[in-house]
Lab assay of single mutants.
Amino acid sequence: MKGKVVSYLAAKKYGFIQGDDGESYFLHFSELLDKKDEGKLVKGSMVHFDPTPTPKGLAAKAISLPLE
């Protein structure tokens, strides 16, 4: 699924993505496929991810940034 980063707290390594389906997904650095892309996780960045339901809500897994 595609989505847009709505927040990312680099110090805490987490944030949120708004998916194309309108839902909010929890984003964690550990799910970023290329850790070098962390600096690109800023508000408004477009990402691809696997939407995954968890006991705490919806989460983004296997997060990647589109090729530039």
Rank of each mutant, 00 (worst) to 15 (best):
K12A: 08
Y8T: 02
D34M: 06
T54N: 07
E31F: 10
D20G: 05
K13Y: 04
K12Q: 09
V42K: 13
P66T: 14
S7V: 15
K61S: 10
F49Q: 01
L27N: 00
A10M: 11
L41G: 01
L27C: 03
L65T: 07
A62E: 07
E38I: 08
G22S: 05
A10Q: 11
D34W: 06
P55G: 10
G44E: 04
F16Y: 08
E68C: 11
H28W: 06
K61D: 03
M1R: 06
K4S: 08
L9T: 13
Y25A: 00
K4V: 14
V42H: 12
V6M: 12
K4N: 07
Y8E: 00
D21R: 04
S64H: 14
D50E: 13
D20N: 09
V6T: 12
V47Y: 01
L65A: 07
K13N: 05
Y8V: 07
Y8R: 00
Y14G: 03
A62Y: 11
V6W: 08
G57P: 03
D50W: 15
K43D: 05
A59Y: 12
A10S: 12
K43M: 09
Y8F: 05
L67H: 13
L32T: 02
V42I: 12
S30M: 11
E68S: 13
S64T: 11
T54W: 05
I17G: 00
K35L: 07
L58Q: 07
G19E: 00
K61Y: 09
I17W: 01
L67W: 11
E23A: 11
H28Y: 06
S7A: 11
A10G: 08
K35A: 10
G44C: 07
D50H: 15
D50Q: 15
L9E: 12
E68M: 13
L32D: 01
F16L: 06
Y8C: 03
V47S: 01
H48N: 11
K61M: 10
L41T: 02
L58D: 04
K4G: 04
L27G: 02
K36V: 07
S64I: 12
K12Y: 10
E38F: 05
K13Q: 07
E23P: 03
S30G: 07
K40L: 09
M1K: 07
G44H: 05
A59N: 06
K13M: 05
A62T: 07
L67Y: 13
G3Q: 00
T52F: 15
A10T: 11
Y8A: 03
L58A: 06
V6F: 07
S45A: 15
K4A: 08
S7K: 14
L67I: 12
E38K: 05
H28M: 07
K2H: 11
F16W: 13
L9M: 13
G3N: 01
K56M: 11
P66M: 15
S7E: 08
L67C: 11
D21E: 03
D34L: 06
F49I: 00
A11L: 11
F49V: 01
L58E: 03
K2Y: 12
L9C: 14
F16I: 08
F16A: 04
P53E: 13
S30C: 12
F16T: 06
L33R: 09
K40R: 13
S30H: 09
Q18H: 10
L27A: 05
D21K: 03
L32I: 05
A11C: 11
E31T: 04
G39W: 14
L41Q: 00
Y25W: 02
D50L: 15
F29E: 04
S24V: 15
Q18K: 13
P66L: 15
G3E: 01
G15H: 02
L65W: 06
Y8N: 02
G15A: 02
L9Y: 15
E31Q: 11
E31C: 07
V6Y: 08
K2G: 11
G22E: 04
L33Q: 08
Y14E: 05
G3I: 02
V42W: 10
S24E: 09
V6L: 13
E23C: 13
K13V: 03
F29P: 06
K2D: 06
D34P: 03
K56G: 08
V42D: 05
A11H: 13
G57R: 03
F29C: 06
P55A: 11
